[in-house]
Simulated assay, not measured.
Amino acid sequence: MQSDAVYSVPRLTATVTTSDLDRFLWVLVGVSLVGDVVTTFLGLHLGLSESNPIARSAIDGYGLVGMLVLKAAAVGVGLCCRPLLPRVYQPIVPAGLALPWLIASGINIYMISTVV
Rank of each mutant, 00 (worst) to 15 (best):
S105P: 04
R23T: 11
G76T: 07
N52K: 11
H45S: 13
N108E: 10
W101T: 01
D60L: 09
L21T: 02
Y62S: 12
F41H: 07
T39H: 04
R87A: 15
A14C: 05
A73C: 10
P10Q: 11
Q2D: 10
S49L: 12
L99C: 03
M67D: 01
L25I: 05
P100G: 04
G78D: 06
F41P: 01
V93K: 00
Q90A: 12
I107W: 07
L46R: 14
S8E: 14
I103V: 14
Y89S: 12
H45F: 15
P83I: 04
L79T: 07
A72S: 14
S32Q: 01
T114V: 12
V29H: 00
L70A: 04
A104V: 13
I59W: 00
R11E: 15
L85W: 10
S32C: 08
N52Q: 10
L12S: 13
T15Q: 15
V16T: 10
Y89H: 12
G30N: 02
A72F: 08
L79C: 15
P83A: 07
A5G: 05
D20S: 11
L84N: 08
S3R: 08
T17P: 01
R56G: 03
R23C: 04
S8C: 09
M111S: 14
A5C: 09
G96T: 03
Y7V: 14
L70W: 05
D20N: 11
V115W: 11
G61D: 13
S49H: 12
D20Q: 15
V34K: 08
L84D: 07
L25S: 00
I112Q: 02
